[in-house]
Structures are given as structure tokens and as C-alpha cells.
Design a protein around this nucleic acid. Structure first.
Length: 490
RNA sequence: GGCCCGUUGGUCAAGCGGUUAAGACACGGCCCUUUCACGGCUGUAACGCGGGUUCGAGUCCCGCACGGGUCACCA
């Protein structure tokens, strides 16, 4: 049986896009599900736009997601090099072969000439394409062009009237006519191969068995198949997965929010959640299981459960999934996740004291169930930090002005003073004692204390809030809110 | 515009000729919780349209409409 080899072949022209991440993920899942290998290949033939930084970013993002590869530019492998700009001699050799066999030819047309040709075809109501005028250039004509300093491109000569069938694992048979394709460029005037050419050479030479990629490449596939045939390579299996759309059903772009993987990590999403979500976009397991580890997904994954239709990126669902992963995390892990956001907000110092560390852990426990993403922690912090608080509403104000409040808060202060250190597990009984001793309902105790300490009617449990605030702050805040409510406390 | 792909609730998505058309997110209600959140229960809500084929069609075929992709010396 043929070895299963798939690849992810990004062009390093920017950070890893969320759609690219999904392509990479599906390749990874397919490889793991079938005992195959994932190859990472860098398609950097656009020297203008390619950068080393992007390449680094892509690899980092993949690692962050937990997608690892078996062969690639960083780890090598038997079919390297894995960067296209390092494979130029390979393409060059094959180009000469194509040239000598008459399957490709030099073309000296200028941009203006090409534009004029397209124009002409358009006016006749035909497909705007290359007219093939350089196909039969004599060596004399070539010399003339060369002497004018024109740099030629190499065009592939597309066979006429040929039916091309793609056997797509997701979409079934897709049929194209070669007549709908004009002779296209395979080597640019700078000597570098174009995408459609390099991808064929590399996939064939790297023994890729299954080409799994985004649907936008479906229309390019017939061009590539023609090249496979011209070069005498056997075809891989193809699987074109649908695109990810933004909320307005157009292709995911900047205006739909975060589009790159790093942005999600910076926003406090967990890689496990992103992977889980991405896998569910276009693929579904047979049953009703939804929260799945990458390992679990791998066990279930198969291409015939991949949907044909494009999917809208639903941020709400991602948040929901992320919230689940946060809740499943240990408190240490949550503390670790929220820490950078607290630092950035200036709420803790850059080199954490052990006291601060404890404080952060208390916060993580108090707020773990309230977070969908780690970055949201800062939105909750104003009730836990600072001396200046405001009573959020008239309703809250009224609760403080209730007759029972002074005695409640008085007793609270006394009991609190009796404690040397504030621990969540000690606070609960303390509050209970107050209700008993004053013979008051819970609401008459908990709510006024909550408002007195935070100005708010909602928030984390009091037994967490109190230790987080600490005695000093509590004293200050009680006085402040009492003043705002216009009441006297001793 | 030509070619290609797609179309089940607002979103993701089961379904592969006979189902009361799953489930999840979001939204509403109820419960839990002396707050909120979490959790539990529950409700509203879908087969784009028109023709066939068939005893029977979301499922198969053909049109149309709509959405998307592609037609680069970008990948």
C-alpha cells in the first residue's frame, strides 16, 4: 500500500491565517488518522512578499496549535529541501525537459501586449486569455526580443479540446475542459516558478499522496493535472475543503475581526479550543460529541465526513468552546493564562512577588467560571481593585440605606478584624454567623456587604472578593460607599 | 462574463428514498444559586424556487435563483 503523505504548503507572506490553520489541521488530522506523515513546505516563490518573519510566525502558530510535522524546512527529511527557493535547480531541470519536448515555450510578450490580447478576446465575447502568439517563435525572433532586453517567461502549452477530470475526495468527479484554459506561465521572467508549476513538481517529488487544501484551489487543479501528465508524474488524490466565511458570508478578512492565529492567542484563547472549533467547521463526528481533544478528533476523523459547503466563522461558538476549556483548566493554569493580561493592565508588577502570586491565584479561582477568554479578566478587575468605586444604581443605593445596614456592616467589620488572615473558606461561616446573630435573611446580609465593598449588585462570590480586597481596601471602600449613600457608620 | 463549487433553523451541523427533520451555539422561559456566572430543564426556529423520476424526495435528475471560488509573471 502507498504511504500516506500529506502536506501543508503556506506562502510566508503574512501571519498564519485562521483558514490556513484549518487546512493545516485537516491535513494533520488526516495524516494522524491514517498513520501517515505531514510535510511542511514553504512556498516562497513570491520573493517580493515572502519574509522570514512570516515563515517563523507560521511555524510558531502551528506549534502553538499543537500541529506538528514530520518533514519541513526546520527539520529536513528525505525529500528536501522544503523551501521552494532552495529547489530552483529542480524546477529548472524540469523546465528544460518541457521546453525540449515542445510542451512549453518562451514568451516575450509585454504586459501591455497581454492586456491588449485579453481586451480583444473580451470584445469578441470570448475567454480573456493568452493568444499563443509566441508558441512558434523562430530563433531569429527570439534573438530580436532578447536584444531588446526582454526577459521571457515560460508558458505551458495547454492541449486543445481535452477533458480533465478531478477525482475529488470531498466533491466527487469535477470535470473541466482544457479549452477554457489559456497557455499559462510556469516560469516567471525572474526565473522563479509560478505556484501552479512549483506545487506540481514538489507534490510529485515529495511523494505527496493526498493533496488536501482549500476550495479556492479547485479551479487551479486542472492546470496542475495537465502538468502532472506532461511531466509524467502520477496524480495524487485531491480533496478540496470549503472556505471559511465571515459573518456576512464573504471570505474571512480583516474586517471580520481577528484573522490570524496569533491574534487568537493574544486574545486569550486556548489552542485546544481553537483546534476544537476549527475542526468542527466543515467536519463533524458521527455522534453528538462536540468538545474533543485533538487526539480524540484524530481518532474520529475521516474525509468523507467533511462538508462541501462553506462555513461561517461563529465567534460566539468559539467563545463558548473556549469557556469550557477554561473551566476545565486547573486554577494554576488559569492563573498563568490571566497573568499576562493583569501585567499589561498594570495590576501586578512584572516580577511577581509571592504575595501577588497568591492574589492572582485567588482571582483565577474567583473568576474562572466567568471567563470565556483570558483577556476578559481585565473587565472584571475594577470591582476587585482600586479605592474609588461608585454605587452602580439607585437600587443599590437603596439597599445600603436600609435600616439594617449599619448593624450588618458593624458586625461584619468586627468579625473581620478578628481574623488574622483572610481565607475564602473562613469567610462563608463568618457571613453565616452574621445572619444568625442579627436574625436577618441572607439577602439582607450578603447584598449590602457586596454593594458596600464593590458598589455592584453582581459579581464573584463574597468569600473570594473579601480575601482578594484585603482588610485595608475593605475599610476604605466601606467608608467610601457609606459616604456616597449618605449614611453614618461608626 | 466564461468555467467550477455550494444551498437543512440567525450560525455550525446530523440526515445518504419512508424520521414527530437529531444535536450544539445564540436567543426566550423555568429551576439551581441568599447576586451574577456555571450547571440543569424547556421553548421559538430549517430542507432556496420550479419541474420531473418514484407508491413515496431534504435525500435522485433537470432548469432557475442566490452565495462563493477561479480566470495574474499571487499563492
Amino acid at each position: 500500500m502507498q504511504e500516506i503523505r500529506v502536506r501543508f504548503a503556506p506562502s510566508p507572506t503574512g501571519p498564519l491565517h485562521i483558514g490556513g490553520a484549518r487546512s493545516a489541521l485537516f491535513n494533520y488530522l488526516f495524516a494522524k488518522a491514517n498513520g501517515g506523515k505531514l510535510i511542511l513546505r514553504v512556498e516562497d516563490t513570491d520573493i517580493e512578499r515572502s519574509s522570514k518573519e512570516s515563515e517563523e510566525n507560521i511555524m510558531e502558530s502551528l506549534r502553538w496549535l499543537g500541529i506538528d510535522w514530520d518533514e519541513g524546512p526546520d527539520k529536513g527529511g528525505p525529500y528536501g529541501p522544503y523551501r521552494q527557493t532552495e529547489r530552483l535547480s529542480i524546477y529548472h531541470g524540469l523546465t528544460n525537459k518541457l521546453l525540449s519536448e515542445g510542451k512549453a515555450y518562451y514568451c516575450y510578450c509585454t504586459e501591455e501586449e497581454l492586456e491588449a490580447q485579453r481586451q480583444a478576446f473580451s470584445e469578441k465575447g470570448e475567454l480573456p486569455r493568452y493568444n499563443g502568439q509566441c508558441y512558434n517563435l523562430t530563433s531569429q525572433e527570439k534573438e530580436t526580443y532578447e536584444s531588446k532586453g526582454r526577459k521571457p517567461v515560460v508558458r505551458f502549452h495547454v492541449p486543445v479540446n481535452k477533458e480533465i477530470v478531478i477525482n475529488d475526495l470531498v466533491r466527487g468527479d469535477v470535470v473541466f475542459e482544457s479549452d477554457g484554459i489559456g497557455d499559462y506561465v510556469i516560469v516567471k521572467s525572474d526565473g522563479l516558478p509560478t505556484y501552479n508549476y512549483a506545487v506540481v513538481v514538489d507534490d510529485a517529488l515529495m511523494r505527496i499522496s493526498h493533496v488536501i487544501r482549500a476550495e479556492e484551489h479547485l479551479s487551479n487543479t486542472p492546470r496542475q493535472i495537465l502538468l502532472y501528465e506532461a511531466l509524467g508524474f502520477s496524480l495524487p488524490y485531491f480533496a478540496h475543503i470549503s472556505l471559511i466565511l465571515g459573518k456576512d458570508r464573504s471570505k474571512m478578512s480583516k474586517r471580520h475581526g481577528a484573522t490570524s492565529v496569533v491574534q487568537y492567542s493574544e486574545l486569550g484563547y486556548l489552542p485546544e479550543a481553537v483546534v476544537n472549533f476549527l475542526a468542527l467547521l466543515g467536519w463533524s463526528p458521527g455522534g453528538e460529541e462536540e468538545i474533543m481533544s485533538i487526539k480524540r478528533i484524530t481518532e474520529q476523523f475521516s474525509l468523507d465526513r467533511v462538508a462541501k459547503s462553506p462555513a461561517v466563522f461563529d465567534m460566539d461558538k468559539l467563545r463558548w468552546i473556549n469557556g469550557i476549556y477554561i473551566r476545565q483548566s486547573s486554577k494554576e493554569k488559569v492563573a498563568e493564562m490571566i497573568l499576562p493580561f493583569l501585567m499589561k493592565a498594570g495590576l501586578v508588577s512584572d516580577n511577581l512577588s509571592s504575595q501577588e502570586k497568591k492574589w492572582v491565584e485567588l482571582i483565577s479561582v474567583a473568576l474562572q467560571e466567568h471567563l470565556a477568554t483570558a483577556s476578559e479578566i481585565v473587565e472584571h478587575m475594577d470591582i476587585l481593585v482600586g479605592e474609588d468605586i461608585i454605587i452602580e444604581s439607585q437600587e443599590a443605593m437603596a439597599i445600603l440605606q436600609d435600616d439594617t445596614f449599619p448593624s450588618v456592616i458593624q458586625l461584619f467589620k468586627e468579625k473581620l478584624a478578628a481574623l488574622r488572615v483572610l481565607n475564602p473558606e473562613d469567610i462563608k461561616p463568618l457571613l453565616k454567623e452574621i445572619t444568625k446573630e442579627l436574625k436577618l435573611g441572607g439577602k439582607q446580609v450578603y447584598m449590602p456587604i457586596r454593594i458596600s465593598l464593590t458598589g455592584r449588585m453582581h459579581g464573584p462570590e463574597l468569600n473570594y472578593i473579601i480575601p482578594i480586597l484585603g482588610k485595608e481596601l475593605i475599610k476604605i471602600r466601606i467608608e467610601s460607599t457609606a459616604k456616597q449613600a449618605g449614611i453614618n457608620i461608626v
